[in-house]
Design a protein around this nucleic acid. Sequence first.
DNA 1: ATTAATATTTGTAATGAATACAAATTTAGA
DNA 2: TCTAAATTTGTATTCATTACAAATATTAAT
Lengths: 143, 143
Amino acid sequence: MNTFEYLLEHNIKPSVQRMAIMGYLDSHRTHPTADEIFNALSPTIPTLSKTTIYNTLKLFVQQGVAQSISIDEKNEHFDANTAVHAHFLCRKCNKIYDAFIKSKKLPGETELKEEGHKIDEAYIYYRGLCRECMEKELNKQNN
Amino acid sequence: MNTFEYLLEHNIKPSVQRMAIMGYLDSHRTHPTADEIFNALSPTIPTLSKTTIYNTLKLFVQQGVAQSISIDEKNEHFDANTAVHAHFLCRKCNKIYDAFIKSKKLPGETELKEEGHKIDEAYIYYRGLCRECMEKELNKQNN
DNA sequence: ATTAATATTTGTAATGAATACAAATTTAGA
DNA sequence: TCTAAATTTGTATTCATTACAAATATTAAT
């Protein structure tokens, strides 16, 4: 991805900080929090402020180059993938997994539209235990 | 609903506070926050503490008599309807609407299960502008 | 019934992510 | 270069939620 062009196309002036944050989000599809992004970029941009991270992420969401994920009640997570897709949070390791969505119609969508509501955003969240953590549990028992 | 029996059936000892909170949740399907519940019950139970509200709601969620809705990034909302159903948050009036789900399979669910993850909870959230608020906007323009 | 053990509730203090705000810096335009 | 606007920064604040320990209520045992 050409971060510079991509931001410009979405009416975001590509400052050093914004490029760095977008670049990080694009290359780390791990749904990082504002804090994680700050810790990752702080060494290379020593003057970086956490407020800038928050401001920029809010701007990114507004301009449609990132989506905010509220699957984790503690922290807000961010995703450079703005397409509607499902997220799965593992309660053990707190990793967030993606899942593609095949169907065009999402559950309840038709009903809400028929009632006259205008839908702007859609999120599908799952929580549970991921495969990796389940395997770890099994190994513990067998030792 | 017989609140007393209902709590007992779910291994929750029906104290005065718990009955009141469950009763409120059951009779007010408006997805209230902990604060709203506190303000509503505080007059009738003057000694009521906000910590009790939080403790009780957490217990309710654990025991499966309520679900927590994180559609609103400011506050956690609660719902006595524990069935999986979609929620729509109006960005203008902040009202949360329900929507029934017909299909048994939720988007992305099959993929996640095939990858070996165990799903315990599922949420479907929408955000946008509700019918009522859209009509208000139109009336403003026509005056 | 009294006492002891347990569970629940309460109030205050602490936490911490997110925001407000104003000063400092950078960028763009004349 | 100078001025205005935009962006960034740092600090202070907010506020929902949690931690914790004391107080109260409930249950069980003797």
